[in-house]
Design a protein around this nucleic acid. Sequence first.
DNA 1: ACTTACTACCTTGTTCCGCAAGGTAGTAGG
DNA 2: CCTACTACCTTGCGGAACAAGGTAGTAAGT
Lengths: 113, 113
Amino acid sequence: MEEKETLNIENSRSQMRRGLLEFCTLAVISKEEMYASDILEALKVADLIVVEGTLYPLLSRLKGEGLLKYAWVESSAGPPRKYYSLTPKGREFLDKLKVTWKALNRSIDSLVK
Amino acid sequence: MEEKETLNIENSRSQMRRGLLEFCTLAVISKEEMYASDILEALKVADLIVVEGTLYPLLSRLKGEGLLKYAWVESSAGPPRKYYSLTPKGREFLDKLKVTWKALNRSIDSLVK
DNA sequence: ACTTACTACCTTGTTCCGCAAGGTAGTAGG
DNA sequence: CCTACTACCTTGCGGAACAAGGTAGTAAGT
């Protein structure tokens, strides 16, 4: 029963990352059109572990909300890929999230300092 | 169907705050013993909206994990209050979360910049 | 040309957690 | 004594991350 404790910090870390995924996903796509594997890689480099089962539904949701669009692009090796990019609405949304992020940052720093 | 969009940014903001609540709650309690209303107030001041229905289960969970303890203190006006404080284990845990927070911060800044 | 490996898409079921709403009980004041 | 207030807590719901599993197109070896 006590070995849960070592897992616990990991759980808390996941919780922290949670909710930032949407923001980060939009942020990486805003720099460059990407398909799912690119996005996973970009997030992984920034230590934000995500798995396919999380990303695909997220991308679908963001597309459904009109924040993202995609284009099929044939790959030289393998099946075709969906390359995602931001819609104008997606860019506006990302800008708002950036503001939110900055504010949240200040709030938390004031609590933690 | 389209009026969801105005709600959407609020939803995303909540998602961002999510996962940071545990961290912030421990952080405010670490500065000073507090009971639930104090904690709610402290978080509200930092623009982290939380409600009772969120906080009570969280406090119970953290107590169950041995990160918090509490002492009953009689109030001059009203029912007695549970004043929470961090256990030694809670302090260690909070320190780890601070490190996590800093790292997360850097990661996200690198994605967003 | 057929089988194997690989890549890329997506779905299902579980679990966790925040939240809205509602519920209990002790204290104080008219 | 009864109404208002404060402080505790629980229940039911919904959203989202994740693990695991599933489909299908392409390529490469024999």
